[in-house]
Design a protein around this nucleic acid. Structure first.
Lengths: 206, 206
DNA sequence: AACGAAGTGGAATCTCTCTTCAACTTGAGA
DNA sequence: TCTCAAGTTGAAGAGAGATTCCACTTCGTT
């Protein structure tokens, strides 16, 4: 097995992960390695040895959270009221993001594309599409709404969350209410965002 | 008068402004001074001598645009249909932002607070408040909507614009439709964003 | 209790952009 | 034309992270 760190190294790895988790939850994904190392009481060499690529660190830290979000989508799929499921899904996801800045950045693509998240979306998109289909059939959403529009609402609400988290940590709920009500009631102009566009929306335009 | 640059310096200043205007419209406010200087065919010293503070450059470049936006607000105020005026106001503003990335960043506070924009908002906020009041009175908006909620919608739509401008330059119109319909139909939870929060929303959380 | 592989610390280096400045050029008044 | 204040240039300095690297320490095996 590849897993056979020396006992002290394993302990350090854990401390490092715990420290990084905490810092990234509070300050976002791009905390400097130096800050993490200092907070963990180690040298920079240690963190670079263990996670030469930042993405490995992020993946190690957040894969559970991401699975949780996928779980939300699955639960939502089981909701008899599809539109309510959709709302609840976005709400729960944003609650996590509100509590964890790094997770929000990860899910909404700040800090670059992530394979972890890409795969999660691959699992969630069909679920969301199914929910939207059911909601449309039930007359709770206008025809023409696509998963891409949900992504747009997620990004929109996320931008309010990012801008107000320090000073009004619940304001995103207002934005979410606006976004969801808008989806229900808007006459959507133009073409629905295609896959490539959704990819961009979720990667901060990059 | 303070204005008495040597003729060559005056010419250079104009070239510099034109070049910077073009680059900032395309790439945003934070183009490096080096890029501007190179594109203008000058040394970096020249641009630093003329605009030691980037904000002076930005103000010189965008004050007309900002006045235009204030003009939009004034025109909107004159609209007999207050809600339509509000919609049109946001739409026109975003049209400008779509055509000019730097302007969008300026108006939505990426790249730091700007005195120019702060003053413009001081003039626009009462106009928007008046429009909202009339729209509420006309039953086109629910009571409880505040200028801060409009700011939030602006920020929300702007985030979609920023993320999709390169690949789907009209997608923001969809987001705008969602935002405006949402404002009309949402039951807004929590407290309306206060002045300090609006300031944050418009300054990218900083 | 000694050895070597694994692990660690943190100064040095790299990179990137912002900013300064001393030497050089030019415009325009005398 | 001559002079010099004003203007220009771009290399060098400063700052902030990111990343490397090697002398030194520690673990765990024999």
């Amino acid at each position: 097995m590849t897993t056979s760190l020396r006992r002290d190294a394993e302990r350090n790895r854990r401390v490092l992960l715990d420290t990084a988790r905490e810092l990234m939850a509070r300050d976002g994904l791009s905390v400097s390695y130096e800050d993490i190392a200092r907070a963990a009481g180690m040298g920079m060499g240690t963190i670079y040895r263990r996670f030469p690529d930042r993405r490995d660190l992020v993946t190690a830290l957040f894969s559970e959270h991401v699975d949780t979000v996928v779980g939300f989508a699955e639960e939502a799929s089981g909701d008899p009221d599809a539109f309510a499921g959709l709302c609840r899904f976005l709400e729960r996801q944003l609650e996590l993001e509100a509590a964890n800045r790094g997770l929000g950045e990860l899910l909404r693509g700040h800090g670059g594309p992530s394979e972890l998240v890409r795969r999660a979306r691959l699992r969630m998109t069909p679920l969301v599409a199914g929910l939207i289909g059911r909601a449309v059939a039930a007359g709770r959403l206008p025809a023409g709404v696509t998963p891409g529009d949900f992504v747009a609402v997620h990004v929109m609400v996320g931008s309010v969350l990012d801008a107000s988290r320090e000073i009004a940590p619940d304001l995103w709920r207002r934005a979410l209410a606006v976004g969801l009500a808008g989806l229900r009631h808007a006459r959507l102009p133009g073409d629905a965002p295609g896959d490539e566009v959704v990819e961009r929306l979720y990667n901060d335009g990059k």
